[in-house]
Simulated scan of single mutants.
Amino acid sequence: MTALLRAGLVGLGTMGRHHARILSHLPGVTLAAIADPAGDTTNAGLAAPIVATLDDLLSYHLDYCVVAVPTALHAPVGLALAHAGIPALIEKPLAPDLPTACALAEAFEHAGLIAAVGHIERYNPALHAMRARLADGQLGTLYQMNTRRQGPYPPRVRDVGVVFDLATHDLDSTVWVTGKPLVSVSARAVSRSGRIPEDLVAIIGELSDGTVTSHLVNWLSPSKERVTIATGERGSLLADTLHGDLTYYANGVAHTEWAAAELFRGVIEGDITRYAIAKKEPLLSEHEAFRDAITGKDTPIVTLWEAATTIAAAEAVLRATVNGTTATPTATRPPAPAARPDAYMLAGVIPSSK
């Protein structure tokens, strides 16, 4: 019988509890222990023991660890895990700035460890289906990628604004869905609720092939919206990522013998198709992919270097909001091939919850 992988979890806040739920029932994995100095404040009734420090957690001889602490603590916890020889799945955003993100990527790369970042939208079934259809050329030439990510402020977020907490989802998924890097951005941001930093941002960008991108992100809307729209010469694909739905709006075909009208014709409404696609909880898919990567399978994980590129894009957005100009994301070093860990060691950091 194959031995179960022993997983640890650092942080038992809002996201940590979701990770604990998945890890408690993930085939091939046992949740060995959880580290959080506050303990189980919500009485979740988890079967795994809860300890106060990362040192205590590492005494459980982990095969890998999930990091769900505030963004500012990703570096101390992640670097300690890299030093200890423990592969890690780290919540997004990877770090509060690009140098820290690169330091984390370099640490795990130098240690020969598998590591990933929880950009969960890459596991959304609607975006998976959109990506496949764009790759097959369903829309022809792509013109625009538009996202709207709006809703009430989540009290759990206290150390970053909407650019790092929410817009990083869209900056990452747009590049992933299209397969094209982001080359420039301009943006406007405000803080209307009195919370610092920004709670609303509007971003306009350009991909390397000339595709225009736009992202509207805020914590000011009483209704929650999660939409991605790809528009091309043959129509639009709309992904509702809250529900995992994908709808195709085809350009209609209308012939005319009126020469004046033929000089400039826009598109007209054609067929509308809601696709029937298999739906699995994105967080479960994310955990399955990382588990399989740990066991040596070739599965799609979001590498730390990819996540660092998203941090560079987020920083470019913030620069653009300050300067009122167009900004170019800072280039990150290409990743080296990952290797498997040889040994586990111990190190300790006081964790907290995310």
Rank of each mutant, 00 (worst) to 15 (best):
L26F: 03
L26K: 07
L26D: 04
P27Q: 14
P27G: 14
P27R: 15
P27L: 12
G28H: 08
V29A: 10
V29P: 02
V29I: 05
T30M: 14
T30I: 06
T30A: 15
T30H: 13
L31R: 10
L31K: 07
A32P: 03
A32H: 11
I34Y: 08
A35Q: 03
D36W: 05
D36I: 01
P37E: 13
P37K: 08
A38C: 06
A38N: 11
A38S: 11
G39Y: 07
G39M: 06
G39R: 09
D40K: 08
D40G: 05
T42W: 14
N43I: 00
N43T: 01
N43Q: 11
G45A: 10
L46Q: 07
L46R: 11
A47H: 10
A47E: 09
A48D: 10
A48I: 01
A48L: 05
P49E: 14
P49A: 14
P49D: 11
P49T: 07
P49R: 15
I50N: 06
I50G: 09
I50L: 09
I50F: 04
V51S: 00
V51D: 04
V51T: 07
V51E: 11
A52E: 09
A52M: 04
A52W: 00
A52C: 02
T53F: 05
T53M: 11
T53N: 14
L54A: 07
D55N: 10
D55A: 14
D56S: 13
D56C: 07
L57K: 00
L57A: 06
L57V: 00
L57N: 05
L57W: 03
L57M: 04
L57F: 01
L58E: 05
S59M: 04
Y60N: 07
Y60V: 00
Y60Q: 08
H61W: 03
H61Q: 15
L62M: 06
L62R: 02
L62V: 02
D63F: 01
D63A: 06
Y64A: 09
Y64N: 04
Y64D: 02
Y64M: 10
Y64W: 12
C65P: 02
C65G: 06
V66E: 13
V67E: 14
A68Q: 08
A68V: 00
A68S: 13
V69S: 15
V69D: 07
V69C: 15
V69K: 10
V69F: 01
P70D: 12
P70G: 06
T71K: 10
T71W: 02
T71L: 07
T71H: 09
A72S: 10
A72M: 05
L73Q: 13
L73E: 09
L73T: 01
H74F: 03
H74R: 11
H74E: 09
A75G: 08
A75S: 08
A75T: 02
P76F: 12
P76D: 15
P76W: 12
V77A: 15
V77Y: 08
V77L: 14
V77P: 13
V77T: 11
G78W: 04
G78D: 04
L79I: 02
L79M: 08
A80M: 10
A80V: 03
L81F: 05
L81V: 02
L81P: 06
L81T: 03
